[in-house]
Design a protein around this nucleic acid. Structure first.
Lengths: 132, 132
DNA sequence: TATGTAGTATTACGTCTGTAGTTGAAACCG
DNA sequence: CGGTTTCAACTACAGACGTAATACTACATA
């Protein structure tokens, strides 16, 4: 059972900047998010500190500034957050989640073909079951 | 854009009791959750009040007791929570979520067949596209 | 009627998050 | 060298949540 990497919307937005840039100073993160979020730079700094406290990012120094870099990948965040939701809402049954997506029409009928496509691709890798 | 019905784990557990029983007094909810959670009755009462404040449950009176009943269905909660996650993690693209499930092997290879099954069922309803 | 009892209402406290002001130190500029 | 700018660190505060103790109220019962 891995850590609880569930993060909030804002935190996710910040992480996304780091994932995109590799590493970034507070001012850069702020610059990227300012247009859509309009937050104070100190707010961003606070978020970054908290993320660091939680071990999701780390920092190094460049002159006076801190350069923050992600410690966890977007893949991993997705995994743990999707897993958490699946576990909580569908008792851990991912197929139930898919079923829900289909029933609730979150997946538009037009996208069914796309899903079917994914399915068959996934099928290929099934043969090399490297059951890690 | 509907309300933000994102609820916590405990709140969800309480809701589940209400969904199962239709309506229930604090003591009943507590009784159901006590074994696994071991919480004080007042804690359950607090949770229920807060859920009521958020409009997710309502109550009527039976003698001295309050009978709480869900105002929102499990379907709806699932919808909004899954939608929130999809929006946040996959930019609202539900097929990307499915893709993630397949890639991350959250869906075991053995379950692929089940998913394919779901797909074809869903396909049937596709013909009566009542595009609501 | 006085009292126990059951059950709701109020209050409380620590933690997390969003959001930011304030402070202090270093660096740069004139 | 002294003022100004730039950062990070610290402090703050409200709202949500987990968790519950305590207070209040009304019914039942001796």
């Amino acid at each position: 059972m891995q850590k609880d990497n569930n993060i909030s919307d804002l935190q996710l937005a910040v992480m996304r900047v780091l994932w995109r840039r590799g590493e970034a100073a507070v001012a850069e993160v702020h610059g990227d998010l300012e247009p859509e979020r309009g937050l104070a730079p100190t707010t961003i700094a606070t978020i970054l500190s908290r993320l660091e406290r939680r071990g999701l990012v780390r920092h190094s120094s460049r002159g006076r500034q801190y350069l923050y870099a992600p410690v966890i990948s977007e893949q991993e965040i997705r995994r743990s957050m999707v897993a958490a939701l699946t576990s909580r809402l569908f008792n851990g049954d991912a197929t139930a989640l898919v079923s829900h997506l289909l029933e609730s029409r979150d997946i538009a009928p037009g996208d069914l073909e796309k899903v079917r496509q994914l399915l068959s691709e996934s099928h290929e890798t099934e043969t090399d079951h490297a059951d890690s």
